[in-house]
């Protein structure tokens, strides 16, 4: 079976572009950092598309799951000097656990209710991170130890870059393959008709929670990698703005499309970086982009290469 359908080849192209970018810049530190940060954010965007595009739910608080993973990995690194792999697994596990908090009520909620609940979740996580100083060091943040993976210290940005891109590749492969699995079909069934899904023997509640758990676990794992990348985790990185940025990446790219989401992440991260010097400019541009997409191109960037087929 093909790993990527024809319509998903754009995903590979997007990835290749970003991998090539630091190489073209001669592996200087800043381009490497930017590219790696994009890869981390792209993983979160992909995880959010599993929830939104594939299973038809919504999260306006994905930075919360991202934060849980980042803090879990950073704190484990500082206190116990654990391997990055352990950090990633712990981050994914903590985020998955956290997702049950919103995922369980989510089985009985939809649309705007779920939007409000997840928004509140994201804010609550950031607030707890700010106030639980004994654990998180408050707004001073947590500085990680030297990051090591399988006995090797990741001493240069190039190492982290390599690790993160391998992870992004794995997440992309998983997400792209999902629609062609039993689980992915169950997600789509629940998204499109809960009544028919139940009649086909699918437990709607369990499927919805599972989508939350998988999505959060990926976001949490990405959070752990983010901690490894920046070497520093603080509450300000995980506010509403960050959650909305992830949301915007999926919407602008086009839901239920791996390649669209990757491209959306690339474009919006590009906008954020380019407009970072003027306060409020990137938020204005991203907001305008979202409104524009909703009004004029509801299918998002994926409509650039994909017509009616499988689109939604």
């Amino acid at each position: 079976m093909l790993l990527f359908a024809r319509s998903e080849r754009a995903a590979l192209l997007t990835l290749a572009l970003v991998v090539a970018f630091p190489i073209a810049c001669g592996f200087r530190t800043y381009p490497l950092f930017i590219a790696t940060q994009f890869a981390v954010f792209a993983m979160v965007a992909l995880s959010l598309d599993v929830l939104m595009g594939r299973s038809g739910q919504i999260s306006l608080g994905h930075a919360g799951f991202f934060a849980l993973g980042a803090y879990a990995a950073a704190i484990l690194s500082v206190r116990y000097d654990v391997d990055l792999l352990v950090g990633v697994i712990a981050g994914a596990a903590l985020a998955a656990l956290g997702s049950l908090i919103v995922g369980l009520p989510a089985t009985r909620l939809s649309g705007h209710y779920l939007g409000i609940v997840t928004l509140g979740f994201g804010v609550a996580v950031a607030q707890i991170a700010l106030k639980w100083t004994a654990l998180t060091n408050g707004d001073e943040g947590v500085h990680t130890h030297a990051i090591h993976l399988a006995g090797t210290v990741l001493s240069s940005p190039l190492h982290v870059y390599a690790v993160v891109f391998v992870a992004l590749g794995a997440v992309t492969a998983f997400v792209a393959r999902l629609p062609r699995t039993r689980l992915g079909r169950a997600f789509g069934a629940v998204r499109d008709s809960e009544i028919a899904a139940a009649a086909m023997g699918i437990s709607v509640a369990r499927t919805k929670v599972l989508a939350f758990v998988i999505s959060a676990a990926i976001a949490g794992g990405a959070g752990a990698l983010y901690a490894a990348l920046t070497g520093f985790v603080a509450p300000e990185d995980f506010g509403i703005g960050q959650s909305l940025l992830f949301f915007a990446m999926v919407v602008v790219g086009g839901t239920a499309s791996t390649a669209g989401t990757l491209l959306g992440a690339l474009v919006l991260e590009g906008v954020s970086q380019a407009a970072a010097t003027v306060g409020g400019l990137s938020l204005t541009l991203i907001g305008a982009a979202i409104v524009g997409v909703a009004l004029f191109r509801p299918a998002g960037l994926k409509s650039l290469w994909r017509g009616g087929e499988g689109s939604r």
Partner: peptide, 23 residues
């Protein structure tokens, strides 16, 4: 079956039938 079909509109026809078999 359903009066209004209640298909999984975002899935292919094949995937719709596969869902009926997945259990």
């Amino acid at each position: 079956s359903f009066q209004k079909a209640e298909l999984f509109v975002g899935l292919s026809a094949l995937d719709n039938v596969l869902v009926g078999l997945d259990h």
